[in-house]
């Protein structure tokens, strides 16, 4: 039986199944994939799937409903790879991974200068419990960081709001990184390799900056200049 070249490619990777979508519209691609799944339901049962959607720009409704359809077939969608920043954003909102993690090279801690000063991630909403932000540069949050939320940044972290969650700045070893917030009471704070747990105090409205000083991690009220 001569098969037309498939618009959907499926292969096995270490983390499960990797599905790559070719060039066709979203409807056609998803139904082609579902057809393939329906042909061999036992093979796909309880599979973990990563999906490479190419340049398709997907919004929450489309991706969430496709995830639900997959879950009805017993498939867990855990990652979505895409060249479109809209899709990446959507996937992150839905708590899906946007890259397949490679085993970490051993010598990561020394990348201090590699962080471009001009690159920052701008987050314009409150980070609620269960949200995790990972970024290689600086992170600016315009909103609160609630208890249970996590930020891991290669550079510095500034929170224009209340910081009550977990922050790790300079995660790749940058001891110059700082963490600041309008209301500073993080659950736990790390800069590079140092860990600090904030003392229980009523810290309403104290603008503070935390940084390394003489080998210690200290937080002090912010002063200009």
């Amino acid at each position: 039986m001569a098969k037309e070249p498939s618009i959907v490619q499926i292969k096995g990777i270490r983390e499960g199944l990797m599905v790559s979508f070719g060039d066709a519209d979203w409807e056609a691609l998803t139904s082609a994939l579902i057809n393939q799944i329906d042909e061999r339901p036992t093979f796909y049962q309880s599979a973990r799937m990563a999906l490479d959607v190419g340049s398709h720009a997907l919004h929450v409704a489309e991706l969430a409903s496709f995830r639900d359809i997959l879950s009805e077939h017993g498939i867990t969608l855990w990652a979505v790879l895409s060249g479109s920043s809209t899709t990446e954003q959507t996937a992150q909102n839905l708590g899906l991974a946007t890259r397949i993690s490679k085993p970490k090279p051993v010598e990561t801690i020394e990348a201090a200068e590699a962080i471009p000063d001009d690159k920052a991630l701008w987050i314009q909403h409150t980070l609620r419990s269960g949200t995790r932000i990972e970024f290689s540069g600086n992170v600016v949050v315009f909103g609160d960081v609630n208890p249970g939320a996590e930020i891991v940044a290669g550079g510095s972290v500034l929170v224009w709001g209340r910081l009550r969650g977990f922050v790790h700045a300079g995660a790749e070893g940058n001891e110059e990184a700082v963490v600041g917030a309008l209301e500073f009471s993080p659950m736990q704070l790390r800069i590079a390799g140092k860990i600090a747990v904030s003392p229980k105090k009523n810290s309403k409205g104290n603008v503070e900056i935390a940084k390394w000083k003489d080998g210690n991690l200290i937080a002090e009220p912010w002063k200009s200049g």
Binding site: V60, A61, A64, N93, L94, G95, H125, L127, R128, S129, G130, T131, N146, P147, G148
Partner: peptide
């Protein structure tokens, strides 16, 4: 309250 916060985050994400 912590769990409610998590749920609200999930509902936001799902719009």
């Amino acid at each position: 309250v912590r769990d409610a916060d998590r749920v609200i985050g999930l509902l936001d994400a799902e719009e």
